[in-house]
Amino acid sequence: MSSRRRVMVLIFASLLLALIFCVYPLPPAFALVRPELLCLLMIYWIMDSPQHFGMLFGWCIGLVQDVAENTVWGAHALALMLVAYVCQVSYQRMRSYSVWHQSMWIFVFLGMHQVIANWVQSMAGYHAQVYSLLMPAVVTALFWPLLILVMRQIRVVHIFH
């Protein structure tokens, strides 16, 4: 396999795993702080190759997440699309930051994602508490350095041997 195709396989596999994690049954206390891995991976891949992935990529992922999670269709699509836009605009700046600095910005991105998704969700009468909007953003931001580390390992082993 060419390294390009390997990367495609990696992207697809990582997104599928994140999607399964999205619906993985967690106890109610943990479900409140479930990290938004799908959003995090989307940010990762856009930061990685912004020339290939953009808003349509984010929108499609979001729609799949909506269908899988049974949320109002279009809620995550809109949220991920807007986050993808912000990533597209800011990737040059983000790349120059240290990992922990990036992580703080990821928190801001995730905050946006949560607010927008919840806003569309509230059309169907579901109102989330501020706590349940904020906590997943915090937890997801903490996952960012871990994701960078794991992805780097995978890419070294899997793609460049």
Binding site: M55, L63, V72, W73, A75, A77, L78, M81, L82, M123
Partner: peptide, 10 residues
């Protein structure tokens, strides 16, 4: 895309 997602949601 924004209009589309809001339309789908509505």
């Amino acid at each position: 895309l924004t209009v589309l997602s809001l339309a789908i949601a509505a």
